[in-house]
C-alpha cells in the first residue's frame, strides 16, 4: 500500500522537477539577468561607475560586486528601476561617482581642432567624425555626453553644451498644485 503512494509521490516529484526545468529558457541564464539590468541603465557608457561601460557595470551588479547607486547619468530613476527589478531597498546616489547632470552633448571648437584623432578611439559610441589633420566634429544625435573625449584632446577644444531639446520636448505639466492631497 505504502509502495503505491511512494510511486505516486515519485511521479509528482518528477513532474514538478521537469516543470521547473521547462520554466528556465535555453539562453544562458546569467545573461537574462544581465540584459534586464542593462536595460535599466542609461547607456551613456561614461564609465563614471568605475566600470568600462554599462554592460560591465550590469555584469558587476548581477554578480553583486557593484551597488545599484553608482550611475550618475541614470540618477534616481535608474536606481528606482534597479531596486524594483532586484527587489532591494532604494538607496541614494553615491556622490563619489559624480552627480546627475541634465542632458549634455560634446561640441568641438572647429577653429582650434588640429585633427590629431586622439579623441576618436576613446569615444564609446564613435560619435566623433574626422581623420588625420582634418577638422573633427561631433555627431550631436549619437553623443551621450560621457566626457571621455575631453581629457585626451591636446588643445582642449572640446566642451560640453546642454543638448538642444527636440521640438516635441515640451510636456504638459502635472497639475500638482490643484490636488495637494495627492502629494
Amino acid at each position: 500500500m505504502a509502495l503505491l503512494w511512494l510511486l505516486i509521490f515519485a511521479g509528482l516529484c518528477y513532474f514538478i522537477g521537469t516543470g521547473l526545468a521547462r520554466l528556465g529558457n535555453t539562453k544562458n541564464h546569467e545573461d537574462i539577468l544581465v540584459d534586464r539590468i542593462n536595460d535599466c541603465l542609461p547607456q551613456t557608457q561614461c564609465a563614471q561607475c568605475d566600470y568600462p561601460g554599462c554592460r560591465p557595470y550590469a555584469e558587476a551588479i548581477a554578480k553583486g560586486e557593484a551597488g545599484i547607486n553608482q550611475c550618475p547619468p541614470g540618477g534616481d530613476n535608474t536606481i528606482k528601476a534597479l531596486s524594483e527589478l532586484l527587489g532591494v531597498e532604494v538607496i541614494a546616489l553615491n556622490a563619489a561617482h559624480g552627480e546627475t547632470k541634465s542632458a549634455q552633448v560634446a561640441l568641438i571648437d572647429e577653429a582650434a581642432c588640429i585633427g590629431c584623432t586622439l579623441c576618436i578611439p576613446p569615444c564609446p559610441v564613435d560619435a566623433i567624425v574626422g581623420s588625420g589633420k582634418q577638422m573633427h566634429t561631433v555627431i550631436a544625435e549619437d553623443c551621450t555626453g560621457c566626457e571621455l573625449c575631453i581629457a585626451p584632446c591636446p588643445v582642449d577644444c572640446i566642451e560640453l553644451v546642454p543638448a538642444k531639446p527636440a521640438a516635441t520636448a515640451w510636456q504638459h505639466p502635472a497639475p500638482r498644485q490643484l490636488t495637494q492631497h495627492q502629494s
Binding site: 542593462n38 541603465l41 542609461p42 547607456q43 551613456t44 557608457q45 561601460g53 554599462c54 554592460r55 569615444c123 564609446p124 559610441v125 564613435d126 560619435a127 549619437d142 551621450t144
Partner: peptide, 11 residues
C-alpha cells in the same frame, strides 16, 4: 539609449 547601446556594442 538603445541606439547608444548598439553603437557602443559595435565599438
Amino acid at each position: 539609449a538603445e541606439v547608444a547601446r548598439l553603437l557602443s556594442e559595435k565599438h
